[in-house]
């Protein structure tokens, strides 16, 4: 067995990184938070980042940090969905289907917020003025982000991408049948 460096996988799945950073930026724009720098993709760690001001409302920090999780997951699932059944179920996928699966998995696997995102949330949580309900939501989110980050050592992000691309269409079928 040979070691595949994480950066190689990140380069291979670069569309997901771009979508992730774009989602951060669009959430900032939505909440009218100034952005100072955006790196959509670079072949090193971190593969991308968005430098922005601390939002005035603390819940917006959580939204900006976790927004890409929802955007990447939903986009990845929608893009892969029509190709998932021919590829994973019927074994009759063509080149176009495999391309959609590649994009869907790439986008979904970069859904997880980074530890940098978690640190932004922690900074808000530690602030004395943070309301209790925000802490109730925020700390579990931080915990999940760190679990996800730890899991990425074991390809959890890749498994998540595949599960979104292959699992959601089958889940939809199971519900509708």
């Amino acid at each position: 067995m040979f070691f595949v460096p994480g950066i190689a996988i990140t380069i291979l799945t670069f569309p997901g990184v771009i979508v992730h950073e774009l989602a951060h930026q669009l959430f900032c724009r939505w909440f009218k938070v100034p952005v100072f720098k955006v790196v959509y993709f670079q072949p090193k760690n971190p593969a991308g980042y968005v430098l922005h001001e601390v939002p005035q409302r603390k819940w917006q920090t959580i939204m900006i940090s976790t927004g890409p999780f929802f955007v990447n997951t939903i986009l990845g699932a929608i893009i892969a969905m029509p190709a998932a059944l021919p590829v994973f179920r019927f074994n009759s996928g063509n080149f176009g289907d495999y391309l959609l699966i590649y994009l869907g998995v790439s986008i979904a696997m970069h859904a997880f917020p980074s530890t940098g995102d978690a640190q932004s949330i922690i900074a808000v949580m530690k602030n004395a003025s943070a309301p209790w309900w925000l802490k109730v939501i925020g700390w579990p989110v931080v915990g999940l982000i760190y679990i996800g980050s730890l899991g990425s050592f074991f390809w959890l992000d890749l498994f998540y991408g595949i599960a979104v691309a292959a699992g959601i269409p089958n889940l939809v079928l199971w519900i509708m049948r």
Partner: peptide, 27 residues
């Protein structure tokens, strides 16, 4: 790039009903 992703998403949404119908009929 974003436009391309959106186009793919539209393409996927157009193709989704046929793909789902086949899957549902099979199930």
């Amino acid at each position: 790039f974003g436009g391309g992703i959106l186009l793919l998403m539209i393409f996927s949404l157009i193709n989704l009903p046929a793909s789902l119908t086949i899957g549902l009929c099979l199930e």
